Computed example of a mutant assay.
Amino acid sequence: MSIGFLTLTPGSAEFGDAVEQVAALRIKVFREWPYLYDGTEEWERRYISKLAEAEGAVVIAARDGEKIVGVSTGMPLLSEHDELITPFRGSDFQPEQVFYGAETVMLPEYRGQGLYRGFLERRRQHAIVLGGFRWETFCGVVRPTDHPLRDPAIPPLDPVWSHLGYRKVEGLTTDFSWRDIDQTEETAKPMQFWIRDL
């Protein structure tokens, strides 16, 4: 198996195709624990429209032959949704100096081969080359330990994130709403921010 990485920005030849595949990968991967996301292509297209419009955005794509098997996306925090920007106002991290890593998702059969680190390091390098950023951040959903759909086969990623240089910032949180796979209505989910220096 030979995996190649592509770093794509708005205006590059393959950016549009990669963004289209972000939606499909998000729906598939985020259906798993801990997100349990019951996504639709229509909502996904609205969600990722900011990616194509944001100056400084990036899609890191992992490709096996012609097939994109994973993606990592990011953009300057100030180009993101208010739910992500607002928690940083008045914090120790000035929003204009923060680069936001939106998601890193890959098909299950490609996990455990070092692609995750490759995604994050390329995304970090993109933010450094852009200039003007002091920090990189992302947020992850917080689920109760006794959640009935918890999958014990999927370990928490906290130790991985810590090993890669991120730190959990207590009190720096937001909420996102989506419909879980076992629910009929959307509910708000707490999201915890993690940050590392650039």
Rank of each mutant, 00 (worst) to 15 (best):
S12V: 07
V71E: 09
P152F: 11
V129M: 12
Q183E: 13
G39V: 06
L130P: 11
I85F: 03
Y100K: 12
F176L: 12
E136S: 00
E20Y: 02
Y35F: 14
Y47R: 13
W194K: 10
I27F: 02
H147E: 06
E170T: 11
R122K: 10
P159A: 04
E96M: 04
Y110K: 00
E96I: 04
W43M: 15
D38N: 07
E103K: 08
L164C: 01
T73W: 09
I27L: 00
P34R: 11
R89F: 07
E32S: 14
I27C: 02
Q94Y: 15
H126I: 08
M1C: 05
E170V: 10
Y35P: 11
V71M: 00
F138W: 00
Y116T: 12
T40N: 06
D182S: 09
K50L: 15
Q94W: 15
S49F: 11
E55K: 12
P10G: 03
L6M: 14
P190C: 06
T137F: 07
G114P: 06
D180F: 15
A13C: 06
D17Y: 13
A153C: 01
A102N: 13
F15E: 12
L36Q: 04
G112F: 13
I128S: 13
P95V: 06
E55G: 08
S49A: 10
E121I: 15
V105K: 11
A23E: 11
Q125P: 04
L78P: 01
P144M: 06
I68N: 04
T187K: 10
S2V: 15
Y37P: 05
E55N: 05
F138L: 01
A102I: 12
F193R: 12
L107M: 01
T7F: 08
P159S: 09
R26Y: 14
R26N: 14
L157G: 09
H163W: 12
G171C: 09
R150E: 08
V160Y: 07
R124W: 13
D92S: 13
L157D: 13
R179N: 00
V142W: 03
D146W: 03
I154S: 09
I3A: 07
L115V: 02
V105I: 04
Q97N: 02
P155V: 08
E83S: 13
R134T: 14
G165N: 01
P156S: 08
Y116N: 07
T184E: 01
K28W: 14
K168F: 08
G65V: 11
G90R: 10
R31N: 13
V129Q: 14
P95Q: 04
T174N: 10
M1E: 14
P108V: 08
G11S: 08
P148T: 04
I48W: 02
T145H: 01
T187R: 02
W43T: 12
R117L: 03
T187F: 00
M191W: 03
L130A: 15
G65L: 00
V169L: 08
V105Y: 02
Y37D: 05
P144A: 07
F15Y: 01
R167W: 05
Y166N: 07
D92T: 10
V58G: 00
F138S: 08
W43K: 14
H126G: 00
A23F: 11
V129H: 14
A62M: 04
M106H: 10
E170W: 03
